[in-house]
Design a protein around this nucleic acid. Sequence first.
DNA 1: ATAAAGCTTCCAGTAACTGGAAGTTCAAGG
DNA 2: CCTTGAACTTCCAGTTACTGGAAGCTTTAT
Lengths: 132, 132
Amino acid sequence: MNIGTASEKSGLPAKTIRYYEDIGLLRPDRADNGYRDYSMSDVHRLRFLQRSRSLGFSVEQCRQLLSLYGDKERESADVKAIAETKLVEIDRKLAELTELRNTLRHLVHNCHGDARPDCPIIDGLSGRMQTQ
Amino acid sequence: MNIGTASEKSGLPAKTIRYYEDIGLLRPDRADNGYRDYSMSDVHRLRFLQRSRSLGFSVEQCRQLLSLYGDKERESADVKAIAETKLVEIDRKLAELTELRNTLRHLVHNCHGDARPDCPIIDGLSGRMQTQ
DNA sequence: ATAAAGCTTCCAGTAACTGGAAGTTCAAGG
DNA sequence: CCTTGAACTTCCAGTTACTGGAAGCTTTAT
């Protein structure tokens, strides 16, 4: 499939997909006309990149994560070690995201939603805090 | 407190903290010697920035999120609208992160962890997929 | 008093895109 | 078949969000 279709399916702009190829994150086939030709496997890699990038992993971390999928020659123990390291990181991110959500939820539910500026959460968080 | 202490407490490099000041994300006091002087409230903003940036929110999104905390003049209905928009985004990120974790967990648990390269998950995900 | 550590500003470099120009190829309509 | 517009190509320049380093001032520790 062409880059436009791959872009739609992966949620990444075509520009970014070409950039990822430049820095060696994937290597699509080329059709006779010179157009890039993406397989479903390529699209999976792209979606994976889209997701992990948007979650705050660096491109180099994504490259590591991708290697878990792509490299059949890689030893399983190695895969396991990398995956386990990343799992710790992901769990930390999950906890932080949950905390952020709770804060915002609280904000939404405890504020009046009208024109009164005396929101208790904002007051609580923005004021001078002496607690530690 | 000085920038070094604020850096420790927030988890952000001093360089980044100064940069955030440059682009108007916070405005610490200055001591008589010209040193920046951070309050606990500043540190809270910094920690909040650290967290939301590492979770893939852009600086501009962080600026919006921060406005929920900082601006007492802001109307509550406005706060509520922004918070609710961000909540949807956070929930999406949570779902994606959970999915990513499940994939990796599966990878960790189903692989042999020895030197055999025939991990079923890698085989499943990296191979040519005909499914859609 | 002097050295090291920490602070200041400023300027240049990097990572990860992103936009735009200039040209080629393809799919649709006349 | 011809043309027109969308989608593709490469290349180069610009943006965002830092990051490193120089040059100099202030504080702390011996």
